[in-house]
């Protein structure tokens, strides 16, 4: 699972480096963020651990997964939604001004 997260993060970095289209860059940032979230969740997971929710059947179990990384990822997801909203608003403003989403064409104008 660590590897999945790292590969997704690197796909996001690749997209950020190669793309000049603002919407594609925002999508790349989101892919990077999802990879990071999967990586943090994977750090908190050990072999044979169960979901950290107490029920009648597992009240005496001791092999719960670490809930702290999951709580941090919950925070990170919400903040990711906020930054994505701001980025999309900036992208719309730029489109209003320049009539294009491409950074190279913007530099030409």
């Amino acid at each position: 699972m660590h590897i999945v997260g790292i590969v997704l993060m690197l796909i996001g970095v690749y997209g950020l480096i190669t793309n000049r289209h603002i919407i594609k860059m925002i999508v790349s940032i989101n892919v990077l963020e999802i990879g990071l979230n999967i990586f943090i969740i994977a750090v908190g997971y050990g072999e044979n651990t169960i979901a950290p929710i107490l029920t009648k059947s597992n009240i005496n179990a001791t092999n719960f997964a670490d809930p702290l990384p999951q709580a941090l990822v919950l925070t990170a997801i919400v903040i990711g939604v906020g930054t994505t909203a701001i980025l999309l608003a900036v992208a719309r403003k730029l489109y209003q001004q320049y009539g294009t989403y491409d950074l190279t064409e913007m530099e030409g104008k």
Binding site: G44, G46, T49, T55, F64, L68
Partner: peptide
């Protein structure tokens, strides 16, 4: 793993919520 701390001192069932 810290999960066991939260399991021994439960506030609510869902430890992530606590």
């Amino acid at each position: 793993v810290d999960g066991n701390y939260y399991a021994k001192n439960p506030i609510v069932s869902n430890m992530v919520t606590s």
